[in-house]
Simulated scan of single mutants.
Amino acid sequence: MSERDTKTENKYSHVQSVFESIAPKYDVMNDIISFRRHKAWRKFTMKKMAMKPGDTAVDLCCGTCDWTLSMAEASGTGQMVGLDFSPNMLKVGMDKIKARHLEDQITLVQGDAMNLPFEDNRFDYATIGFGLRNVPDLVQVLKEMQRVVKPGGMVVCLEVSKPTWQPFKGIYYSYFKYILPGLGKVLAKRYEQYKWLPESLALFPGREELASIFRSIGLQNVEAYPLTGGVAALHIGIKENRHV
């Protein structure tokens, strides 16, 4: 195994163990960490996606399936697939799906976002919410998302980002580095796991850099929207439709 393969495997295993351990408190901590803004971000994203009845989607790193459920309800009849590498997260998600009686519309799959078990050109949308910064190779994940959407289909990423203006930038990084792990320790009894979040953000590309990566793999009409002062960002790209 090469050094790169070893690093990839180590990151995969580490992140998987993090999310396995925080699954029961994940939803509560999301509300606290984002001051409940993640719900507004997802609502904005859904508006930009403009799903139509019958549209299909695959939701990568679907976690506890909030976004998967939103898309299922927006589509009405379209089949949704939620994929995540954490069985514990998927279990929480399945409980939500059953509570809304959407088992016939939503399928959950335990799998690797870098190697999707789906054929080319299958879905109208491929989405990833707050998961791209956690994968070992984000370019590979984006290429896989592009592969499995239909020509003219949409690749969508909603993720934390990096504010660029002071003093908000300094306050934001202090919160992520010093306060957030403490909240994880007190509220979820998990310090090391929530220490991972600022570490993952430090290596993640900024909004414009990620937009450039979208373009570099061939996605068209790329749009990048800063959210809440740039603490999060929405990126959208369209797979080339060769018949247009």
Rank of each mutant, 00 (worst) to 15 (best):
K52E: 02
T56G: 00
G206Y: 08
I217G: 03
D124E: 09
I22W: 02
R147H: 11
V58L: 13
A113Q: 03
I213R: 00
R122L: 14
S200I: 13
Q193F: 03
L116C: 06
V141D: 00
I97P: 10
D59N: 05
V141L: 02
K48Y: 06
D27R: 04
K239E: 04
K98T: 14
M49T: 08
L227P: 04
H38M: 05
A232D: 07
M94Y: 07
I179K: 10
R215T: 15
M46D: 00
D137E: 14
P205C: 07
A233F: 04
W196S: 15
L102Q: 12
P167A: 04
E223L: 07
L90D: 04
V139S: 09
D112L: 06
F214C: 09
V139K: 14
K162Q: 11
K195E: 14
A99C: 01
V222R: 06
L116M: 10
E144Y: 04
N221L: 08
P117T: 13
Y191C: 02
L60E: 05
M49P: 02
D55R: 03
F204H: 11
F44E: 11
L183C: 12
T45A: 14
F204Y: 14
K98Q: 15
D5V: 12
Q79K: 14
K39G: 01
L90N: 03
A202N: 11
A224P: 01
F204V: 08
V15Q: 03
L132M: 10
I217Q: 02
T8I: 14
G153A: 01
T64N: 04
G93E: 05
F214N: 07
D84G: 02
T68N: 12
P181A: 09
C157T: 11
R147M: 10
P117V: 08
K48M: 14
Q146G: 07
R36K: 13
R190M: 10
R242C: 12
M1E: 10
A232T: 14
L183K: 07
R133T: 02
K189E: 15
M94S: 12
F130S: 00
